Simulated assay, not measured.
Amino acid sequence: MPSQPELWQILRSAKLVEGDEPRDNEPHWANRFMLGVVGWLAALFLLFFLFLSVGDVIDSPDHALALGATLLAMALLLNRSARSGDLWDQFVLALTLAADAWLLYGLIDRMDVHAVGAWAGLSGLAFAIAFCFEHWLIRLFHTLVAALLLTLALACLGLQILALPLVMGLLCACWLWAQRRPHQHERFEAMAFGLALSLILLGRLHQPLFDETNVLEELGQSRLPHWLNPLLCAALLLALLHHLKLPRRQGLFALPLVLLAALIPGMGAGALVLLLGFYAGSLGMMTLAALLLLGFGSLYYYDLALPLMTKSWLLLGSGTALLLVRTLLLRLGRHS
């Protein structure tokens, strides 16, 4: 493989480029790291100054809300107007997280945990922050939080079973929009990754999270049967397969994923993220899909009320079936 100077000479001889070889003006990673540290230090000094100046005032929830809103507006203004760079990006990130903390402090004492409007409003605010900021980590983090807050709002209505399919639908919309709108790719890609990360937590919310305590059931008793969750996920996965218009052979190979999603809770989320990752060639999405499939498969295996010997035979049979499917796919690939 030719080196970069040799490749430039080849392109010049073919009259595809002109002039000297462009130089890489990207700063060294150590310089970028130091700029990021300086940005955090500047933000921390500013926050420390604010704490010393108005420390007694922000004990009031109203004043904490006002300070949080002011910091959020300042971070958005800097993010929109300042020149992009590692220093400013880290400074804006620190200010935004501090604004989130003060807003949470101002709201935590006055919120009714059973109020649907409160959770839905906070979810909408988090989505708005993710959409407005030109910062990848801020978009990802706030989209993740917005999905969790939306789940809490649905739990107050007794509709927590719909949380996972709803977030999966939002993930499909963001990811497909990012692929079809290149000028908005970065924004919706970050939001899609935030939604995909939230699926790691949402996939098990229809079951007890810690021992026998279910956080969502404490907010409101479910009005829908648990078996509806995997069926809706499987239906959404089937709709995505139809929308992508995959070739007939590939569509048939994906049908076992739909069956798996209908039988095992949470597996539909992993199958959907895997399908989107392969469709766009995203290694990050495929890695998240592997974590989702492995995690929910392990949880399902752990929750089976079967003897260990029976579970061992099930694992042996599953491994044998997967080897047979692999052999069949290889043969079909050779024939095609």
Rank of each mutant, 00 (worst) to 15 (best):
G169R: 03
H114R: 05
L7S: 12
L7C: 13
S84L: 09
E189Y: 04
C132E: 09
L122C: 13
L224P: 10
D56W: 07
L154K: 05
P22V: 13
L219F: 14
F131E: 15
S312A: 06
L291G: 10
Q250N: 06
Q179V: 10
L328S: 15
L103G: 14
L276K: 02
L294Y: 05
A254Y: 14
L104S: 09
L11R: 08
A290D: 08
A234P: 01
G317F: 00
L314R: 02
L238P: 00
V38F: 14
G121S: 12
A305Y: 07
S282W: 02
D20A: 04
H114T: 13
V325E: 10
T213R: 15
E217C: 15
A261M: 10
L332N: 07
L171G: 07
L171I: 01
Q184W: 11
L293A: 00
L176R: 12
S123P: 00
I108P: 09
H28G: 09
L166V: 00
L274C: 11
W119N: 02
R223G: 09
P5H: 02
L236Y: 04
L288S: 01
E186V: 15
Y301F: 04
A98D: 03
F33Y: 13
L50G: 12
L322R: 00
Y300L: 04
F45C: 03
W102V: 10
L35R: 12
F141M: 14
V116C: 08
L202Y: 04
V57S: 15
F51N: 09
F49L: 04
L232G: 01
Y105Q: 09
D89W: 10
E217D: 04
N79R: 03
L275Q: 05
P22Y: 11
F45D: 14
L197S: 15
A269E: 07
E18F: 09
F193K: 07
L330Q: 11
T70N: 06
R12G: 04
L65Q: 07
V37G: 08
L140C: 08
I108R: 11
M191G: 06
G121Y: 01
L232M: 15
F45R: 07
G158H: 02
L246S: 03
G277Y: 03
F51P: 06
D62A: 12
Q90S: 11
S318L: 12
V273R: 05
N25Q: 15
L170P: 02
W29L: 08
E21P: 11
L176S: 00
F193A: 08
S123Y: 00
E18L: 14
M168H: 01
L16K: 03
A82V: 07
L288A: 03
L231M: 02
C174T: 03
Q184H: 09
L238V: 01
L93M: 05
L330I: 13
N229I: 08
R223E: 12
L77S: 10
L323Q: 07
A98K: 04
L316Y: 04
H183A: 13
